[in-house]
Design a binder for these strands. Sequence first.
DNA 1: CTTGACCTTAGATTAAACTCCAAGGTTTAT
DNA 2: ATAAACCTTGGAGTTTAATCTAAGGTCAAG
Lengths: 153, 153
Amino acid sequence: MYRIGELASQCDIKADTLRFYEKHGLLAPSSRSGSGYRLYTKDDASRLRFILRAKAVGFTLNEISELLSIELDKANWACADVKGMVDNKLEQVTAKIAELTQFANSLQSLSNACCGGPDSAEHCSILEALESEDKQLSAKNETSHKGHHHAVK
Amino acid sequence: MYRIGELASQCDIKADTLRFYEKHGLLAPSSRSGSGYRLYTKDDASRLRFILRAKAVGFTLNEISELLSIELDKANWACADVKGMVDNKLEQVTAKIAELTQFANSLQSLSNACCGGPDSAEHCSILEALESEDKQLSAKNETSHKGHHHAVK
DNA sequence: CTTGACCTTAGATTAAACTCCAAGGTTTAT
DNA sequence: ATAAACCTTGGAGTTTAATCTAAGGTCAAG
Ligand SMILES: [Zn+2]
Ligand SMILES: [Zn+2]
Ligand SMILES: [Zn+2]
Ligand SMILES: [Zn+2]
């Protein structure tokens, strides 16, 4: 039996987090001491580790709730259900990566176009690009003479 | 002069969003009609487009506020400042991509290990992997016989 | 028997970017 | 004149995952 602080430090999380998980139905201690302290069993600890592993692969707490309810009633679920959740998540993650990659490419183009020097930003290519649609930066702009209108040191 | 709904539909956002931007100091209409309607000028519209372009490359609204204050006082800022913000953001975005790529890899491994069939999840490799540390899935697991303990159709 | 570390609760706060609502005033067209 | 479409305000709700606060009980050591 672990008290909340013990289990928390064992798993490198805060006691607050454990109370939060309890409030949201992810993990309740199996019992309480006479004075009301939460007491977690080894099974509770395993369940927590399941939660943390699922978090580590990107599932949200809501999704982990679903996963836990499957876990407790495996016989009534199919591999297809479980794999479906994983594939679904993978799709979301992949979509987010695509969006961020777009951002990264645009940012890289902006960065490439700017000299980054100490001179006034009055003709900064980054600002100009944000000001008007037409002044787009291409991703292959790396060898440009930095697009600036002032001399490069 | 555009009314809020006009400008919003022109830029493919909602009037609510414009009010939100105003409340957060990003964009205020230059004037109001006698009856209190917001009236936006062409300059206001340009500023909005600046905001939307900055959003499209991944900046948060707070960062866009900074960018806007530089934009309005270019002479007192250097290219280095602007490029610094861009490079900083690029670093953040890159870090997030790395994290998500980790997630994607783990999820792919989990997915690869599961047959995804209609049989009971009692021996589902995904669940087993989440249950215990040791049963890790490798990313190169694709050619495995799906790790399941039940027959594949 | 007191100090310090630990525990309890309910509820507020954080960040991000909207989105929606109610209750009412204005414009425009028919 | 009346309906439809638009506008106003303040404030609440959404999502995610905690984190923090206040006010107080419990426990082991010295
Ligand atoms: Zn420059
Ligand atoms: Zn520049
Ligand atoms: Zn299977
Ligand atoms: Zn399976």
